[in-house]
Design a protein around this nucleic acid. Structure first.
Lengths: 340, 340
DNA sequence: CTGAAAGCGCTAACAA
DNA sequence: TTGTTAGCGCTTTCAG
């Protein structure tokens, strides 16, 4: 059995109320000597407050739910670590869930979070263009949960919280533009799943850049992957068949697949095929030919998500939803070749 | 305010005790009709038990603490996801901590875990050869926490739990042997930090293989990195200076750095330099020349850690510590060249 | 089969 | 400055 406030009270010959007061640092409520004695015995007895009891009495849990997608993607892992660090340092405890598309068991998760009494939720999941039943249930749950919710996209929430987003449209636009400016006329792209909003945004950016430059948009030039390296394996072969000389991959992981296939076909980057990625994960620099890519300020975004959640929880941010859209920046490295 | 057992009791005109009984499925204690009615109103009222209250009353929390190291390492991310999946599916809630070497704030973490009343702990951290103060405090805490603890190494615990380990000694041995058998005589290695036990184990394997084959061990042939790609950046240049024709990198991330540098120097793998890694992260297959590496069954190990923790928690595994050591297997791919 | 009552560990009025 | 009292929401004897 752990030591309780009662043990301390006994040891010091006072009431539990006094101990509680003394320990919670409400200054002026308990005499200095008594406070000292209580703190000392608490330390000696190795006292740690029982959080279940505290929550029950105060209705505060200091718990927050964090819903992430696949952490094997370095970009996601970094986001998570940034979030974790901030939350932890501010005394919050993370209840972590990794949701892979398939098993988004919204019912179980939401009642777990409710039951635990989380004070806020961080939702870092892709937004679908064709949301299913489960999504809407999740969203309804969020909207009625009565706690602030931070998302990494605009998912249609009306509750307190913030959408910390990234301008993927512009990312697609500047990446493509860069390729065009380097003389490429047939530019393929490796998209993520067609029903992810972040895919559609990049695709629109890609398309607008092409059309604006009079190159026209050809749906045959888009290969649909799944943001993983493995899923983008066939992309290059396909796009080469469409006579592309350059490729914009919607994330770095898929750009890596292009590298791989290029090598297999004996093609070299950027001489034979130019490529631009997106995310700017550390690995870009580790490739034989460093990957030119669109920088996503992952760590900053993670920190802002966490910090803003805390602001809302602690009531310093009102009840309204807010938004912050980060702008992309191109990282020029070695994977784009200038054509005559 | 969330709906409570009391609301249901009122709605059904019974006492809270009856509701509790009915809802917790103790069959035979409450009449079938009553049970049905209670369950139904519970559902209608969207009732979710308050876990703080439940824990307080039952002294069970269904919480487990998970202490991980840097998730940007794919191998760690995979381990974590495997753990998460099992724990989640068995109804446990994860309290997640990412500890980077520096900020291992053992005091705060251990009292957090105690305060929350975790029923078990999963500790996936590197073991040091020269443990510091903080480590011993952590270990003392573990030993006296009264809950089972699962580790990914033997850290000297005496409490209930399991050490789910990997035979890194043999990993080092077979990797090096493979290089020797391919005719290499000067084999460098890229170690992790010298004070990590897993580094020392691999190093011993490397050394024994060399000596056994009469090649002798030369400390100049070991470059010390930090298991990250960036930290291994200077490795190749250094080892080339020592006339190495092959390199055993203690993990894949560092092997990737060798690839990178090789390219910079205009060397090709494996013709100019052979390399073997360790872990077998998915990325190995994505390189232009797939990396030959030692397979570590990360997912299986993660699952076993989680499952064994549950066994212990639920009392199906006794009070003694157990152990499982996984054996390495070499994945032969394209990064090793046979010398005449 | 159901209810009353006590208690898990802590906090928060309100009194003294 | 300190103690008394009453819960927070749930489980669990023990009676009825």
């Amino acid at each position: 059995m752990n030591t309780t406030i009662k043990d301390i009270a006994q040891a010091c010959g006072v009431s539990t109320a006094t101990v509680s007061l003394a320990l919670s640092g409400k200054k002026g409520r308990v005499s200095a000597e008594m406070t000292a004695r209580i703190q000392e015995t608490a330390a000696r007895l190795n006292y740690t407050p029982n959080r279940a009891a505290v929550s029950l009495a105060t209705r505060r849990t200091k718990l927050v739910g964090v819903l992430m997608s696949d952490l094997r993607n370095t970009h996601i892992a970094e986001l998570f670590m940034a979030i974790e660090e901030v939350l932890q340092s501010r005394g919050y405890t993370l209840i972590c869930h990794v949701l892979d598309d398939k098993s988004m068991d919204t019912g179980r998760i939401s009642s777990e979070l409710i039951g635990l009494g989380v004070e806020g939720i961080l939702y870092a999941q892709p937004m679908f263009l064709d949301p299913d039943e489960a999504f809407f249930r999740m969203r309804d749950f969020f909207n009625s949960a009565g706690v602030p919710i931070i998302c990494n996209d605009e998912v249609g929430l009306t509750c307190a919280g913030m959408d910390v987003m990234f301008d993927f449209y512009r990312a697609g636009y500047i990446a493509t533009k860069h390729l065009i400016e380097n003389g490429h006329q047939v530019i393929g792209c490796v998209s993520g799943p067609a029903n992810y909003r972040v895919s559609e945004q990049r695709l629109r950016g890609y398309r607008d850049a092409l059309e604006e430059c009079g190159l026209g948009y050809d749906p045959k030039l888009v290969f649909y992957g799944d943001y993983s390296t493995a899923g983008a394996e066939p992309a290059l072969s396909y796009l080469l068949g469409q006579r592309a000389t350059a490729v914009f991959a919607f994330n770095d992981e898929m750009a890596f697949a292009i590298y791989r296939s290029a090598h297999q076909y004996g093609l070299s980057i950027p001489q034979d095929i130019s490529v631009v990625g997106c995310d700017n994960v550390p690995f870009c620099n580790v490739l034989e030919v460093p990957l030119s890519t669109v920088h996503v300020p992952t760590v900053e975004m993670g920190r802002e998500m966490a910090e803003s959640l805390i602001m809302y929880i602690e009531g310093h941010a009102g009840k309204k939803r807010s938004q912050h859209i980060y702008e992309p920046a191109l990282m020029l490295r070695g994977s784009v070749h200038r054509r005559a």
